[in-house]
Amino acid sequence: MSRTKLYTILSIACVAGYIWLFYGFQNSAAAGNHTVEVCFIKQATDIPCPSCGSTRSVNSLLHGDLSSAWFYNPLGYFIALVMLITPVWLVYDISLKKQSLLSFYIQIEAYLNKPRIAIPLVALVIINWIWNIIKGL
């Protein structure tokens, strides 16, 4: 993973994420909570995917509703955290020509590849997925 590639991907993801969030925020303020559903898995199989509901979750966080954010999808907390930190870190790294984010990313990747970390996380995601299916998001 090169620095340019990672930073390009992260920038695109941040911009897309914020546009999507803004659109969802506008819509939820205007007419209930109905946004366009983009999840391919849900459209094709009618079964929610592990991250279905995270837009609604982040939206609830923006409205300060912590409990319904947790109910929609606990991953929303993680996504909100990433979306808050990443742009700041990106700007810091690019403006000062450093690569602290890249080295952090590589460290995290190596850490996540350890089985004793990876297996519990995979289990958590699967439990969350089952919960999603039960909730019928």
Partner: peptide, 16 residues
């Protein structure tokens, strides 16, 4: 590419 895998997982495959 665990990092990108996590990215894809939590964004529903980057909105498809």
């Amino acid at each position: 590419d665990t990092g990108m895998g996590v990215g894809k997982l939590i964004t529903c495959g980057g909105f498809g």
